[in-house]
Design a protein around this nucleic acid. Sequence first.
DNA 1: GCAAGATTTGTTATCGTTAACATATTTCCC
DNA 2: GGGAAATATGTTAACGATAACAAATCTTGC
Lengths: 340, 340
Amino acid sequence: MTMKHSTTTMKDIARQAGVSVMTVSRAFKADSSVNEATRNRIREIAEDLGYVFDSTAATLRTQKTNFVAVTIPSINNANFAETVDALSDRLAEAGMQVLLAYSGYDLAKEELLIEQLLRRRPEAIVVTGGSHSDRARRMLSNAGIPVVETWDLPAHPIGHVVGFSNAATMHGMVDHLVAKGLTRIGFIGGDTEADTRGADRRRGYMAAMARHGLAADRLIDAGKPPISMREGAVAMGRLLDTLPDTQAVICVSDLTAFGALTECQRRGVRVPQDIAIAGFGAYEIAGISHPTITTIDPQCRLIGTQAAEVILQVLHPTAGQDIAPRLVHIDWQLKPAQTT
Amino acid sequence: MTMKHSTTTMKDIARQAGVSVMTVSRAFKADSSVNEATRNRIREIAEDLGYVFDSTAATLRTQKTNFVAVTIPSINNANFAETVDALSDRLAEAGMQVLLAYSGYDLAKEELLIEQLLRRRPEAIVVTGGSHSDRARRMLSNAGIPVVETWDLPAHPIGHVVGFSNAATMHGMVDHLVAKGLTRIGFIGGDTEADTRGADRRRGYMAAMARHGLAADRLIDAGKPPISMREGAVAMGRLLDTLPDTQAVICVSDLTAFGALTECQRRGVRVPQDIAIAGFGAYEIAGISHPTITTIDPQCRLIGTQAAEVILQVLHPTAGQDIAPRLVHIDWQLKPAQTT
DNA sequence: GCAAGATTTGTTATCGTTAACATATTTCCC
DNA sequence: GGGAAATATGTTAACGATAACAAATCTTGC
């Protein structure tokens, strides 16, 4: 219980305990051979001095940081939060931590983040999506650590992949709606450039409509991602104003979809009788709103645990395991709205 | 464009450029005196070798990490996400990064996180809430860095505080409902131990009811936090089953409140005519659901920017500024539901 | 052309920890 | 009781960067 501990080091403890610094170091390692009495004495003195282990120094010497860097587009997104949560949980079991950074759906910012993260020498890096700036791709390739791209199936993966085809989910969704006899189907999404996964879904919608011989011309651009509930409501208003005969609308996310739903409720448009509403992400709200929202469950947590699994396998390969890039396909599921 | 860069260091660049390591180091610092031609040559070689600066080593030597540690209860919470986002933005302007960790509403886990974070030698640490384990408090006090407690007004602050009284917000809410002539007011919240802010709100509700001479006996325990929408719906079901004459219900968060709202809709209970619903947090859903939800806006982003401001002031005190612990009061606001 | 000052580069030591090796002490078995 | 094995501790050097100081090179004005 002294003050000014900011600078307490193993040296101080060693002096006080009358041992060498190395013995102190060993006293903190579980498996090392130190006399039990000595170890306890050292631990006590450390506690007393308010000692906090300096992992910076240890990292420099051992070249092991024991953390995995993760980039996501937004911190305020339940989908990515679940993936990160599952990832952290699984990695924590292996004694590793996650260092999280978010890009704000901006590839230039992502590039910057990746550089900053790599400077801290992570053991592996997980990025969301398969679109990155050229320099970001180069840095990732050269980093000499496992790279996992998630939430996407990039055409030219950098390293490992744990994801699904966003476009394919929209094929599934369009098929589902068409099977219900709906043909005049719209799409509410964001600015194509920024949210690459959203853009993929939009393309998937268009391709799927074409496959059914239907016009994919009921596209509402709701601005820069992420598209909020409010923007979803505004977009729905525009759709109802301009194309009132629309029978169904697919939204880029469940939050957008919920906003759209509330706009219908405000206008007295009945859902799903007058218009069906679908989203993406299997957010809690999709299953509990009244009425519920048809959605795609991308299995957020599974993406996280699988990414962790890939990392652990590649970092600690057991005999006979190849070190080839992994490509893990995540099976998304369509969850229809409850027809109560 | 060589391979195996995992170990490229300034030494390698120095050798290739025919200069000393120190010159390489200087070539990466903006203000240092290096011949422009030399600097460019070094930068080129670095790029060529795929060099990535090793901040671990720099940190050890300079004793500056340039990051602030932050703990929040949950990563999947828009309120905390906004606070962290605002905090990051402001700190980024000053060239600092945020290292985020979440405790899962578990004080034992928070203690562990705090220790792990301090080992990385942050310049400052921001924690959510004012309740911590004894050892956590001790570690924070002894850390020798600025400590900011947020989202609360602790009776015995560790260092600086940027927050508000959760109990006071509930006084405001009860007053608001009573002013509308409602007296049979319930509360849906979580397990008292785990979510200390939620517990404070619950206590605030009870005190406020007592102040009005009303019975605070319509308490529904919705389980372990965070209380989801679904749990809110279930809790509302129990309230309607057991105390159908309840006129208003305050929920521990807007998400809980929305779940409660949907349960009313499923049962044909009219909101707000039959029962009024209030929440907490000014989540987007509170303002857009149909009907909207009365809520408390705790000014999440302001908490973040103010916390950043405190940290920057304390870390770089300008002449004449005291270094006394700051106590920043955040003015929450009650946002009534729209009466359309 | 030369001293004084400015600019550029180099040398050495160091941050706090730990791997690798060396040495001292204890245990244990025949 | 002697020596091999096991246990406990110490010494040295290193991880990759940079602060502090030293030295070399270049400007500049008279």
